[in-house]
Amino acid sequence: MKRLASCTLVVAALVSAFSSCASDDGANVRGTSCGASSGSGSASGSGSGAGSGSCASSGSGISNQGSTDNVKVNEAVAAYDQWVRDQIDGLLEKTKVFTDAVRANDVAAAKAAFAPSRENWEAIEPIAGLVPDIDGAVDSRVDDFASVNDPKFTGWHRLEYLLWEKGTTDGGTPFADELDAELMKLKTEFAKVKLTPIAVAQGSAELIEEVSEGKITGEEDRYSHTDLWDFAANVAGAEKAFELLKPAVNAADADLAADLESDFDDIDAALAKYEEGEGYQSYEALSKADKGDMQAILGSLSENLAKVPGVLKLG
């Protein structure tokens, strides 16, 4: 999960019927980060009404406001919006395979289903963060808590801890149930969200920041070492957004579009070396030299993606 909890004061949040205002700094501080703006972001996660001067930045540090007349951008946003909804459907399906295995006390099957269940999530994580509180409940890491025994340490990584560190599914059922419930909530709540151009552009950049801050270090999936699955899914989500925005970026700044294209090609090629079966090798297989290359590619990607909102005159 992403631990950045920023809160931009904006006058009007143009998110239809829904203003997202979550901290994702773990359940223990849920809902507190945006309180300063308008008292929104209640612990229940319902947020305040649209247009009330509420905090429009999400738990993932991206904002979802504003609009543009740029037709190419609007087409991209519409297509991305649909793609995200498809990802959420896939997420529910694959996570159920995982949680069913936990409930059936099948450790091997649960371990096998863990990384695949996270792929769709990792592909859309910053966008999913527009719905408050979900990220903290499903994807916080143990570092967000004083200890593994904190009852608020829930979600995938709690189950990962049980499966790999304890070698058991014992005690996992409540966490599996909650994971399903939270993701179902994501689907219902996300139905009320209308994606804006800035969210798509920033979300793409945010996904690469996620990789640089957690996946390349092996912190995210520290028990299962399936970080490269998440890594690849983050990149896929960012790349999807870029592909859709490419005609618009190209029209505004052709050099930037070309640089981004080659950066994405490079990171795809770097990851391809680690493909295995349906997914990826263990994080521990990642060589130091390849890690250095990846750091540089991600660095370049981040610098370039950071320019996209400005180049498209968004925000």
Partner: peptide, 9 residues
């Protein structure tokens, strides 16, 4: 570092 991000680690 910003100017050389893609090539220096």
């Amino acid at each position: 570092l910003r100017r050389t991000r893609g090539h220096l680690v």
